Amino acid sequence: MKDYSTHEVHELIQDNNELVVIDVREHEEVSTGKIPTAVHIPLDELPHAISHLDKDKQYIMVCRSGARSNKATEFMNASGFNACNMTGGMLDWKFDVN
């Protein structure tokens, strides 16, 4: 499983329109700000939402510190998706949020 730093994710977002960032934090956490291009799917809702996702896309999983997104990455990859974890999570994200 590949992990990306926040800096690497920021660069990937700038360079790749096909990349999908999924923020797996809870609703109240996301209300403080998320990566502008990120789709919000809380971790406990991911098993239900996965049927609506495209297996041909690359996914970067994000949470507050990197632990929940690591679990989400493992789940996504076990389900046949190409997913990677953003290490350090939003605690390390030093770029714009919305």
Rank of each mutant, 00 (worst) to 15 (best):
V9I: 13
P47M: 08
T73G: 08
K71Y: 09
V24R: 12
D15H: 13
H40N: 10
S79E: 14
L91P: 03
V9G: 00
Y59Q: 04
L19N: 03
V62M: 06
A49R: 14
C84V: 01
N17P: 02
C63E: 07
D54V: 04
K34M: 14
H27F: 13
W93H: 12
G89Y: 00
N77P: 05
V39N: 04
Y4H: 13
H48P: 01
D15M: 14
D3H: 11
F81W: 01
V21Q: 08
K34Y: 08
K94E: 11
A83L: 11
G33E: 13
E29W: 09
N16L: 00
E26M: 03
Y4Q: 12
P36Q: 06
N85V: 08
G88D: 03
N16I: 05
T37S: 15
V9E: 05
E18L: 12
S69W: 02
S79Q: 15
L19F: 04
D44I: 06
H7V: 14
E29A: 02
R64V: 04
V21M: 06
L53I: 07
V21K: 05
S51T: 14
D15K: 15
K94H: 07
K71P: 06
R25P: 06
N85P: 08
Q14K: 15
I22H: 10
T6Y: 10
A49L: 08
R25E: 00
I60F: 00
L46D: 02
G88S: 09
P47V: 08
E29M: 06
F81A: 07
V62Q: 05
E11D: 13
K55I: 08
E8Q: 15
L46S: 00
D15L: 14
E26F: 02
N70F: 07
P36L: 05
T6D: 12
L12C: 08
E18M: 02
Y59T: 09
S79V: 01
D92G: 05
L53S: 06
A67S: 11
V62D: 00
S31F: 10
K2L: 14
D96R: 09
E29S: 05
W93M: 07
F95A: 08
S31K: 14
Q58K: 09
L19I: 08
V97I: 15
A38S: 15
K71H: 13
H7G: 10
K34G: 11
P47Y: 11
H7A: 15
R25K: 00
A38W: 12
L19H: 00
I35D: 06
G89N: 02
F95L: 06
D92A: 15
P47I: 10
S65I: 09
V21P: 05
F75P: 03
F81K: 09
K71C: 05
K94V: 01
F81R: 02
H52R: 10
D92F: 04
D54K: 06
Q14L: 14
S51E: 13
T73N: 07
D96L: 09
S79W: 04
I35Q: 10
I35F: 12
K71R: 15
Y4E: 11
N17Q: 10
M86C: 11
V30T: 14
E18Q: 13
